[in-house]
């Protein structure tokens, strides 16, 4: 799993998907920040987080769509599935790679916090809990995209059910909860 994780992170940056993702994230949330907080003079980052939530819906597929389609396209899935690594290991490696990029994007929120603290007081705990919430939302979304595995799972008895992320329901539930609190 570790090998796959490291490779995918590298691949995200070589293929510039990571840069695109981060650029979109940073620019849109930065814009929101400057409109709402810097111009409006509020330290409530609610708009930023809401924006992040909405961006995620559209941008997460950008991260995840190439995770498996590349494998299929380049026929490298055969290499992965004939290696002594479990299917779980493969999926988790890719999952955490996508999640890492997402967390790097979401972590800009701390930078915004620091920026705003120059002008007023920032409720750091709220910031933190919002950050965790948005990360969980991202985790859920990434998990939901995990449905493009090869059809024939090599184990007797499996008739080729598409894999669905079991992390997704839990994370989605948790993030809903947190969001309501905030």
């Amino acid at each position: 799993m570790g090998a796959i994780y490291r490779r995918e992170i590298g691949a995200f940056f070589t293929s510039s998907i990571a840069y695109v993702f981060l650029a979109v994230f940073y620019s849109i949330t930065g814009f929101m920040l400057s409109m709402e907080n810097l111009a409006g003079g509020a330290t409530n980052l609610m708009t930023v987080f809401t924006t992040m939530f909405i961006i995620s819906i559209f941008m997460i597929p950008v991260l995840t769509m190439r995770l498996f389609s590349e494998e299929k396209k380049q026929r490298t899935e055969q290499g992965l599935l004939t290696a002594p690594v479990s299917l779980t290991g493969i999926v988790l490696g890719k999952y955490f790679a996508a999640l890492t990029i997402y967390v790097i994007a979401a972590a800009v929120v701390f930078f915004y916090g620091v920026l705003l603290s120059l002008f007023g007081t920032v409720a750091w705990m709220t910031l933190l809990s919002n950050f965790i919430a948005i990360v969980l939302v991202g985790a859920a979304f990434i998990g939901c995209r995990r449905h493009c595995l090869p059809a024939d799972v090599p184990a007797r008895g499996h008739a080729g059910e598409p894999y669905s992320g079991s992390v997704a329901p839990e994370a989605a539930h948790l993030s809903e909860l947190l969001h309501k609190i905030l």
Binding site: A11, Q74, R75, P84
Partner: peptide
């Protein structure tokens, strides 16, 4: 699978990696 070295009909190569990086990846895998 630990006992097998497999070269499929279409070699499973990651085009975006260098030869050394790829083989290191396989080593870890």
């Amino acid at each position: 699978k630990r006992n097998i070295g497999y070269l499929p009909e279409i070699p499973p190569l990651y085009l975006d990696m260098t030869v050394k990086a790829y083989l290191n990846f396989v080593f870890d895998l």
